[in-house]
């Protein structure tokens, strides 16, 4: 190296100052970051982490009707839950409800998405129609379906009797109530699921289809060799989202059946709601809420893990 460096090395105390300056800079950047995060962290703290902790806390206490803990209960609430038929019943109803709604919603939405994936004249109108149920709020959807299920004047029984069937009290019969609510739910949820799956389909590189066509693959073969594998992350995501949604079902139950008849539709969240805000058993309701949290956390966690692996796999 022939370059001469002029001798302006900084004096010794300076290097001490720079360390302090570096610390100050780190502190400043931390403060600035925190300013941006503060709203989120505060809100998560107050309305998510604190209440989650509080729910855990309440779940091991007996409470008064205002939700104040009165006496330590230990695991009594949980033990009582496990021994309570109605808890098991509610769990069963929830699982059945999920089993009825999730696969059907995903399958129907997938079919609809495939139908409008091809570009044809006027396809945009059909896309809008298929997505439209996303704009149906729980209240609107529920009152419409409630009327459709009306035993005397509802369209469903009208059609039934037109083809010679016997009228059914869809929402009042404990054998049909859950199925009836599930049908309404599927209709409500199709919009979002459809939209997500369509977006997933459109993310697939069209040249893959072109090369499949050149290779002479039939439509169904293309579906199995190109579409399904490439869409599988989306399908999986949509399934878990629907599953979590199903586990959290509340609105349509409150509208259509109020958990009845004879607890046939008393799904998890509805059971929690009743225990807490009708029976004022906050401790026991909290214990159930913790069970719900554990189930949903598990499902979400599995989704994360699986999705992560999928990304590597691609």
């Amino acid at each position: 190296m022939n370059e001469r460096v002029s001798p302006v090395f900084p004096p010794a105390p300076w290097s001490v100052r720079t360390k302090r300056a570096a610390r100050q800079a780190a502190m400043k950047s931390w403060l600035e970051g925190m300013v941006y995060l503060f709203p989120s962290l505060l809100l998560f703290g107050v309305f998510l982490f604190y209440p989650l902790g509080r729910t855990m806390y309440l779940s091991v206490f007996h409470t008064d009707y205002q939700g104040q803990p009165t006496e330590f209960a230990g695991l009594a609430h949980f033990v009582a839950l496990l021994q309570d038929d109605s808890f098991w019943h509610s769990l069963k109803a929830t699982i059945l409800f999920a089993a009825l709604t999730v696969p059907t919603t995903v399958a129907v939405s997938f079919g609809l998405a495939l139908l409008v994936h091809e570009t044809r004249k006027g396809i945009g109108i059909f896309r809008t129609i298929f997505a439209s149920t996303m704009g149906m709020s729980v209240g609107v959807a529920s009152v419409i379906w409630m009327f459709m299920y009306n035993p005397a004047i509802g369209i469903i029984n009208r059609l039934l009797s037109a083809i010679g069937g016997v009228p059914v009290s869809w929402l009042l019969d404990q054998d049909t109530a859950l199925y009836a609510v599930a049908a309404a739910t599927i209709w409500m949820n199709i919009g979002l699921t459809f939209l997500l799956l369509l977006a997933g389909l459109q993310n697939i590189d069209p040249s893959l289809y072109e090369s499949a066509r050149i290779a002479g693959m039939s439509y169904w073969r293309q579906l199995w060799t190109v579409t399904v594998p490439l869409l599988s992350p989306t399908l999986f995501f949509v399934t878990t989202v629907s599953l979590i949604q199903a586990l959290q079902t509340f609105g349509q139950i409150d509208f259509l059946t109020k958990g009845g008849p004879v607890e046939a539709t008393n799904v998890f969240v509805y059971a929690i709601y009743r225990e807490a805000f009708v029976n004022y058993q906050f401790g026991s309701a909290s214990a159930q809420a913790i069970v719900l949290f554990l189930i949903i956390a598990l499902v979400t966690f599995l989704q994360f893990r699986f999705a992560e692996r999928k990304v590597h796999y691609q």
Partner: peptide, 29 residues
């Protein structure tokens, strides 16, 4: 800034918690 990734994971972890599991204390709050 220091601790950025840790905060991010905390934010993401909130996806694990269903709103319904926190609704009782939230109502009381």
């Amino acid at each position: 800034f220091p601790g950025r990734d840790r905060w991010f994971y905390i934010c993401i972890a909130t996806m694990l918690v269903p709103w319904e599991a926190t609704v009782i204390p939230n109502f009381l709050t």
